[in-house]
């Protein structure tokens, strides 16, 4: 859902730039105080994987495709602040080098996917984990729900920006973006759970790296 230039108005772009710059600045300050030794390479690997996975579009329905956004995955592995920086880096490189997502619209794309996508993923995952406590399937259910909802809410944020800009009426943008991303979100959920399951089998310590760093 990378917004190209031309889809949103200058005013919407400016407000989004301010909101995302403020959020990313806050994330830098938070990460600054709490980054563990192994979180440095984990941030690099997570960013590299999300970039590569974002190239792997999968068909959903009616000649439409989607791809992993990775906001929930990054939040689960790295916490919300480092996760926000990972998604922001991916989006900045995509806009500057790959002309994927506009330069004027970069603030909006960071706001939707790196700020809102990551925070929604984090809140839903930690909330559900607490609710489901020790049940063996808690990780998978929470991971899937966090991934699905992060994509749907991010797409609704994009729809709001399109509507505010006068590009598409509210009654069209919100349901159209929401519905197609409810389908794409299923793919996001499946990939997120698959990565979490792979890590549980191979390196379970990496799954709890952030919680451990918080407790220390």
């Amino acid at each position: 859902m990378h917004i190209p230039d031309g889809f949103i108005s200058t005013g919407t772009a400016a407000v989004s730039w301010l909101a995302s710059a403020g959020s990313v600045g806050y994330a830098v300050r938070r990460v600054n105080r709490q980054l563990g030794e192994r979180q440095v390479p984990l941030m690099g690997v997570t960013a590299a994987f999300i970039f590569a996975a974002q190239m792997m579009n999968f068909t959903v329905a009616g000649g439409t495709s989607g791809h992993l956004l990775g906001g929930a995955l990054a939040a689960i592995l790295l916490g919300p602040w480092a996760g926000m920086l990972v998604l922001t880096s991916v989006l900045v490189v995509q806009a500057l080098l790959f002309q994927d997502g506009g330069l004027v619209a970069l603030g909006a794309n960071v706001l939707n996917m790196a700020v809102i996508g990551v925070l929604v993923g984090w809140v839903v995952y930690t909330g559900l984990r607490r609710l489901l406590s020790d049940r063996p399937w808690a990780t998978w259910v929470s991971g899937f729900a966090a991934a699905w909802l992060s994509v749907v809410i991010a797409s609704l944020a994009a729809a709001v920006e399109l509507a505010v800009s006068g590009t598409s009426p509210w009654g069209v943008a919100l349901p159209a973006m929401g519905l197609v991303h409810m389908l794409i979100g299923i793919g996001e959920g499946l990939i997120t759970v698959a990565v979490l399951a792979f890590l549980r089998v191979t390196r379970p310590d990496l799954l709890t790296l952030y919680q451990k760093a918080q407790g220390a």
Binding site: H2, G62, S65, M177
Partner: peptide, 18 residues
């Protein structure tokens, strides 16, 4: 995953479709 990327779906993504 990057090596497999030519296999990606060629269809427009959600926002492009809308």
């Amino acid at each position: 995953v990057a090596f497999l990327s030519p296999l990606a779906s060629p269809h427009p993504d959600g926002l492009e479709r809308v």
